[in-house]
């Protein structure tokens, strides 16, 4: 790790203001992603703003009948919350499919959303990577790309977003709430929160410099059957090759989002609309325009089959 100074934030607005004052500052929450990357010198903050003392660790009902999840709520606590288990089971299941018990005890709502890719070339500082070192090239495109994106990538980067939680939130139309360094608050629908790489894979979200996530809100419960299915190389403690989050209603309509296939949680209105026609039609809409590599073309079939299994489970 490079040396850094450390402070404890006293309020969300003060944290955002402190981050804006120091160009190399970063927030630290659970630390489970940031410290991993700092040890490898992929992240090199000169100043850490510890947000753990902020009162952002509560789950509260919203006036509209939804839930507001504080940025610091730990993944374990979110998955175990009675309201989440009852009304947003797809989110509880997505959380429980991620990482390990020890990690979920530390990992926070905001940190999980902002965790960085697991692309092996991003992690290996001897390799070119446009996300880590803009302009250096992409090691993965002509390299080992089995885990990487089949859709939504670009000539510059085909990394996937590794979060399970975010895929559940995408299926539920969550909204990210933030506070900016000038004290203004904003609401960012999760659809537009993560960005596609285009020419600038180093820019991953809609957040401005210093902007602090304060909460994620969920709209009122929509009912239906909630399923999260994750396909991976080990039964546990492994990132997704493909994951499917789905909320399916009795008439066969619903919402579906994918993990492991794109630079962001992947959802398309056409695919939701095609759900009553079955997995093949919906998967085709999700994978429209896909540009897989030789290594990861298997994901196209895997998406269709996993979605098929999810729809069968929802019907049973």
């Amino acid at each position: 790790m490079m040396p850094f100074t450390y402070e404890r934030a006293q309020s969300p607005a003060a944290a955002a203001a402190a981050a804006a004052r120091s160009p190399s500052a970063k927030f630290i929450a659970g630390g489970t992603n940031l410290l991993d990357l700092m040890k490898l010198r992929i992240e090199r903050p000169g100043h850490l703003i510890d947000v753990n003392g902020l009162a952002l660790d509560r789950i509260e009902p919203t006036a509209e009948g939804g839930l507001r999840i504080g940025a610091l709520v730990r993944n374990t606590d979110l998955a175990a919350d009675a309201r989440v288990r009852r009304d947003y089971a797809v989110l509880a299941r997505a959380l429980l499919a991620g990482a390990s018990g020890q990690l979920r005890n530390k990992a926070t709502t905001a940190g999980n959303l902002l965790q960085r890719t697991r692309c092996p070339y991003f992690y290996d500082t001897d390799q070119p990577c446009n996300k880590r070192e803009p302009g250096s090239g992409c090691g993965a495109l002509a390299g080992y790309s089995r885990q990487l994106a089949v859709v939504g990538g670009s000539e510059a980067c085909i990394a996937t977003h590794p979060s399970d939680m975010a895929v559940g939130m995408r299926a539920l139309d969550a909204v990210v709430e933030t506070v900016r360094p000038d004290g203004a608050t904003s609401e960012i629908p999760i659809e537009g929160f993560h960005r596609l790489p285009g020419e600038t894979p180093q820019i991953e979200t809609a957040l401005q410099p210093g902007e602090l996530i304060t909460a994620v809100t969920l709209p009122p419960p929509v009912g239906g059957t909630h399923v999260y299915r994750k396909v991976r190389d080990r039964a546990s403690y492994a990132f997704a090759l493909v994951s499917v989050a789905a909320v399916i209603q009795r008439d066969g309509s619903g919402a579906v989002a994918l993990g492991g296939v794109a630079p962001k949680p992947w959802r398309r209105a056409e695919a939701d609309a095609a759900l009553p026609q079955g997995a093949q039609a919906s998967a085709a809409a999700l994978m429209q325009g896909a540009r897989p590599t030789e290594d990861n073309a298997f994901k196209l079939k895997l998406v269709e089959r996993t979605l098929g299994a999810v729809l069968a489970e929802a019907r049973s």
Binding site: T5, Y6, E7, Q10, A15, A18, R21, S22, H47
Partner: peptide, 22 residues
């Protein structure tokens, strides 16, 4: 000692130069 944001807002902490230990 660990500064809090109140004190550091008066004296913004300069980013450390590599090699500086905090």
């Amino acid at each position: 000692p660990i500064p809090d944001t109140e004190t550091s807002s008066r004296t913004p902490a300069p980013d450390p130069v590599p090699g500086d230990v905090s």
